[in-house]
């Protein structure tokens, strides 16, 4: 669905954010895009959505060049930005103004999502809290039935019950012809939701692997003492939370936060394991 080839991008000519980045994303997956502040998570999403233009390299989204912003592609992209603006109108007026642009817009689904998120439908959008607005925009985006769903920090501003609702809704929104990319720095919000992890660091993709692949090759467990097998560890109450190479095909649960820190701290040790 998305083919990124030798992408070079920088907000300043002499300071590239991405250097020769290449990646392919396919349908039927929920990708979790992780990275430090300033690693370029939002910028990569904007490149995919055609909101910024690459300095060089090519970007192919469903056979289109996103920088051309063609309506045929835009109807298939649902972009939920971190910062957004909603006009001072009611939800039905907002839907009336925008839904007609999306030929597959599912009105009953939108209503169901609003009910699930517990949104007061008669209230004006401008009078809603940030979290409520975010839920409206997520519900609208999903109801467009767009094939590519891009979400930048979608759980920011959501309360604890809403985060659980969000995970449930996103899991049910994934279909075989849909690709969902979620960028976040709150990795715990994506637990049990994403099936592929993409980590950005130092101008390129530091890790791109499915959860299954990661847990097949790495083992996440609590150890009392550190030894040579431990790739990365963090002290905990009863010893250490450690990442080790999974020599014995042990079953373990992916700890995204630990993996994230491991990738940043021990990139050289992890690289050969995934290559």
């Amino acid at each position: 669905m998305i083919k990124i080839n030798n992408l070079n991008f920088g907000y300043r000519k002499n300071q590239l954010l991405f250097k020769n980045m290449s990646m392919q994303l396919s349908t039927g997956h929920i990708y979790g895009l992780l990275g430090k502040n300033g690693a370029g998570k939002s910028t990569l999403l904007k490149n995919i959505a055609g909101l910024v233009y690459a300095d060089s390299g090519s970007m192919d989204v469903m056979g289109y060049d996103p920088s051309k912003r063609q309506p045929a592609l835009l109807t298939e992209i649902c972009f939920i930005p971190e910062e957004f603006y909603l006009p001072s109108i009611k939800i039905d007026a907002f839907v009336k103004a925008n839904a007609a642009f999306y030929p597959n817009f599912d009105h009953p689904y939108f209503t169901a999502l609003l009910a699930e998120f517990d949104i007061p439908v008669t209230q004006k959008l401008i009078d809603m809290s940030y979290g409520q607005k975010k839920k409206v925009i997520i519900a609208f985006g999903l109801a467009t039935q767009a094939k590519l769903v891009i979400m930048d920090e979608p759980t920011n501003g959501l309360d604890i019950p809403s985060k659980a609702q969000f995970r449930k809704i996103m899991a049910s929104a994934l279909t075989e012809d849909r690709c969902i990319i979620i960028s976040t720095h709150q990795v715990r919000d994506l637990d049990n939701l994403i099936d592929t992890v993409i980590m950005l660091d130092e101008n390129s993709v530091a890790l791109k692997a499915s959860v299954e692949e990661i847990t097949n090759r790495l083992c996440f467990k609590r150890v009392k003492e550190l030894d040579d097998k431990v790739i990365y560890a963090e002290p905990s109450l009863a010893g250490y939370n450690a990442v080790m190479q999974n020599f014995h095909q042990e079953d373990s649960k992916l700890d995204l936060e630990l993996l994230f820190n491991a990738v940043l701290a021990e990139k050289n040790k992890l690289k050969p394991i995934f290559n």
């Binding site: 959505a49 909101l51 912003r69 063609q70 309506p71 835009l74 109807t75 992209i77 972009f79 930005p81 910062e83 957004f84 603006y85 909603l86 925008n98 642009f101 999306y102």
Partner: peptide, 17 residues
């Protein structure tokens, strides 16, 4: 409004040429 990021994103992503 295109000078403001949140408004610009919504407007530019509207499926019209």
């Amino acid at each position: 409004h295109l000078g403001q990021k949140p408004k610009a994103i919504i407007d530019l992503m509207i499926p019209a040429s």
